[in-house]
Amino acid sequence: MAPVTLGDLARAWIAVGTQSIGGASSTVYLMRSRLVERTGWLTRREFMESYSLSQLSPGIHLIALAALLGHRLAGVRGVLVSVAGMMVPAAIITVALSAILIGVTGHPLTHAALAGVGPVTAGMTAGLAVISARGTVRRGLRGALDVAVIALAFMTFVGTSVSPAIVIIGCGLVGILLLRHERPETERAAGEE
């Protein structure tokens, strides 16, 4: 197969960045479609291996996936082209939508609509927490320990002024000591993260 040019790579990632409405599942679908099925640049195994590693990343996992896939295909320049190709168009679209929202925020109808959007957003966030927990909590007694860590983080946020940063780092350290038996089922969350 001919080497992938940076121009080809940029076009593929710009397509992902502009067409993936709806978050992770549609973004992963488009990535796989563009880089594996349509072009044959990567095998499914290579894609899934990078996907699994990206789930260990800090921050937005799919940015890590774009970087890892870009590196496989075109080295360091591939990293930059892939991440920028996906994120810059998405950023432009996001800023444009935000500017439109600011433009209509003062209108009474917008105000009323946002009164309904708030609870939906709250519920969706809680739903994401359940999805994340479902993919991470183990079965049996180990699962009880996992749930206790979730409850501890919840109670700390609700009942104390301890920074979430401290909670996250603290639970990570607890994880090294007590939760190290097996890896989280990251692949199960393929369409959810």
């Binding site: 260990l56 860590v149 994880g175």
Partner: peptide, 28 residues
Amino acid sequence: GFAGFNRGVLLAISGLLLAFGLAILVPT
């Protein structure tokens, strides 16, 4: 060890997101 750290962080974020959902529901 890294898998354990990863699991601990993910569990903490699950709990924090649940609490965050509650926190943004109230001022709505």
